[in-house]
Design a protein around this nucleic acid. Structure first.
Length: 276
DNA sequence: CGATTCCCCTGATAGC
DNA sequence: TGCTATCAGGGGAATC
């Protein structure tokens, strides 16, 4: 599922192709992903607009368009944005097709239909629900050991829960959370405020390392994730715990365990990530 | 404050 | 063969 490294990869794969292009038309095959405006008005509103820029914030993609518009996209579980030739056969789950001035198409496909589109005035961007509540960008200078330590002090819930909370740190999902905690040698159910100073430093390092590594490998294609060119990522080859229940830990050989945290399947090594 | 449950949705898989 | 149950989960809302 697209988390920060995957969304960043989509952004990078699309930016060179979309910027400067004009949207000539929009075809809607399924409108359920469009939150704003009314899907009936979306085509009219977006036609003739030009892509000026693409940014990522947490797991959101923000397309800046001409005439002070912003298109905010969240891929959720299975959303895909593809830049393809108009002649390329359409996937069964293609819901939106933006025809571009270069004869290509930007297509949105989403097997589970959870993704969201918001086309809004640029001025409303800072108030957009979800986006506005996002916490710190973990790959920015704001994400420091000091900040992390301070933030965790009053968190009386599991550390995995905190990592998944988008209003605290933006962009970490289930896969990277498990990999980060494994890398840091921290049990996912450890109460956040009980982490030692040493563990906080480990956690901070692991977070930065794993997210960067994920981007380097162009994301994790564990289900249907692909980038804007339809290319799969490579990070799934490097996962050490996620999806590996029962397999030997690469560090110590103990079988990887699985439990539930916050309703999410949670993988960890019971030996390398001891419960405190 | 935090934990839990439900909901949105479809496909893969297991059990009968 | 084909049916049904279960699981996967990001995020928001409702409930305890």
């Amino acid at each position: 599922m697209p988390e920060l490294p995957e969304v960043e990869t989509v952004k990078r794969s699309l930016s060179g192709k979309l910027i400067g292009k004009e949207i000539r038309d929009l075809e809607i095959y399924f409108s359920g992903n469009i939150r704003r405006p009314d899907p009936l008005l979306m085509g009219e509103m977006i036609r003739g607009k030009k892509f000026l820029g693409i940014d990522r914030r947490g797991k959101y993609l923000i397309f800046t368009l001409s005439e002070d518009l912003a298109l905010v996209v969240h891929l959720r579980m299975t959303g895909q944005l593809l830049y393809v030739d108009a002649a390329f056969p359409k996937d069964k789950h293609t819901h939106l097709v933006f025809s571009l001035s270069d004869g290509m198409e930007l297509r949105y496909a989403d097997l589970r239909k959870f993704g969201t589109f918001d086309l809004i005035p640029l001025s409303e961007l800072p108030q957009l629900k979800g986006l506005a509540q996002l916490g710190v960008e973990p790959l920015s200078g704001d994400f420091t050991v000091q900040w992390l330590d301070q933030m965790l002090q009053n968190k009386n819930r599991s550390i995995k829960n905190v990592l998944l909370d988008q209003t605290i740190i933006a962009g970490i999902g289930n896969i990277y959370a498990d990999e980060i905690l494994y890398e840091g040698g921290i049990h996912p159910e450890t109460i956040a405020c009980n982490l030692t100073e040493d563990q906080v430093r480990q956690l901070w390092q692991a977070t930065v390392k794993l997210l960067n590594l994920g981007i380097e490998h162009r994301g994790t294609s564990i289900r249907n994730y692909v980038d804007g060119d339809g290319r799969q990522g490579g990070f799934q080859e490097l996962l050490k715990v996620y999806g590996r229940r029962g397999e030997p830990c690469v560090r110590c050989g103990s079988p990887i365990g699985k439990t539930m945290v916050q309703g999410r399947g949670t993988y960890y090594c019971p030996n390398c990530q001891p419960k405190v």
